[in-house]
Design a protein around this nucleic acid. Sequence first.
DNA 1: CTTACTCGTTTCATTATTCGAACCGGCATT
DNA 2: AATGCCGGTTCGAATAATGAAACGAGTAAG
Lengths: 257, 257
Amino acid sequence: MGTVSKALGLIDLLQASSQPLGLTGIARRAGFDKATTRRLLLELVANGYVEQDPETRDYSLGPALQALGRAREQRFPLYRALEPSIRALAERTGETVHAAEYCAGNLSPIVVIESAKANRVILESGLKLPLHATASGIAFLAASPDAFIDQVCRRVLARYTGATTTDAEALRRIVAETRQRGFSLSDQSFEAEVSSVAAAIRSASGKPVGTIAVAMPTSRMTPEIAFEFGALVKAQAEEVSARLFGKANGEPLRKAS
Amino acid sequence: MGTVSKALGLIDLLQASSQPLGLTGIARRAGFDKATTRRLLLELVANGYVEQDPETRDYSLGPALQALGRAREQRFPLYRALEPSIRALAERTGETVHAAEYCAGNLSPIVVIESAKANRVILESGLKLPLHATASGIAFLAASPDAFIDQVCRRVLARYTGATTTDAEALRRIVAETRQRGFSLSDQSFEAEVSSVAAAIRSASGKPVGTIAVAMPTSRMTPEIAFEFGALVKAQAEEVSARLFGKANGEPLRKAS
DNA sequence: CTTACTCGTTTCATTATTCGAACCGGCATT
DNA sequence: AATGCCGGTTCGAATAATGAAACGAGTAAG
């Protein structure tokens, strides 16, 4: 693994952590030596990607990330394009709805609107959705070329709950079913007591770039609900895809000349 | 310079560029060998910090930045805290108003509200404000400890216009004046035909974290306007500082326990 | 059709950078 | 006073980064 990936891995740790971390804690979690960790952190701090509290000496995410996030959003306004759709879907379904973008092997939530119900699904900040164990991930796989699916199947499929699919062949079967159905279903495969339906957002070339999903407590899930909400996410994902990638209203966002 | 900083420098290049760049262009701008540049870029792509268009092979900012920016904003909601103040100030003054955060030797704009006037100041996306040549920078320096000012003065002070202060002693004098005045002034020291006033946002410990500034075409600037708007940014910066760092309404944002 | 250019990519011997065990001083607890 | 944990530092050994050169594909020019 290259030095750069090690450093970026530290940023990931800081994102995953809900609070600032000390040097020793970061080194332990990352599996690096303290000296190594510190050198990497110093370099990240010098570039503004990480920030160190001068008092507690703990490290946290730095200001450069905010600036870069804004820059990316400006060039490719995913949030602005997705937020209204997600909100509408949340109102329509009454459940927690989220959109995620594919990023380095996982799906990262971009927009999350929580259900207003007392018993609702929440997505922790910084959470990443694994491809093989979430409705979003399955929907993404179903929209991906076979070569990509093969690649994912070759990895070890981590187990999150008793219902997680950890067998490559079973995963392929589920993906095939999803392709036919047009949206994906998950039943407590990532978190206990959570069921979801999802569909992929596709770019102009058909390649998936992200997903839209509705998540609810398993107690509220029924086959009828699954199909009703499934049809909704599918329709919404298609509409968003068209809006983003100009199938309908022009303005190609990707390649600004 | 460490390998990590080299890689992060490439991200900076991509942010500064208004369009995606090819390998050769990036290598030339960064001053690295093509092979080196490519290796760094590949690692950044693998981590989602950079994205490569599979067709044109051009590189641009990646999805991870958006996710990380969101995470940082959630832990330290600068944008949410600043946006209303900046908007109010923009309405009150009728000019372009912006807030910036200190990041790796520069000030990065976080919130920008442009004037509604036809002849107005605009801030290009990805622009970074140098400390020695902008009203924001001077205001930041004036709020910084002397050791930091010394450090900045030791660098070579880049020239942007005929009015840019490039002499360390002159810079110290301007900073001293700003400390007395309570807000900073700039007259075409960074961009021709642009004048600004600014004041620093300070954390609970008094250390500056960012700035608020009003920028207008030099043709609309008068001594009276300068003092009127100067008093406004100063007051607004103080209010924001108090709001962010709990001098007034509690809730210490930095060290979430 | 050939030539000459550019671009992205790969290779590999050289070299500079990174690594990490051991260590230091500070602080809190025992 | 002793112990353990913390952030931070040192320096020889080990490793990963480097970049000149070459390759193949594509393209424009001759």
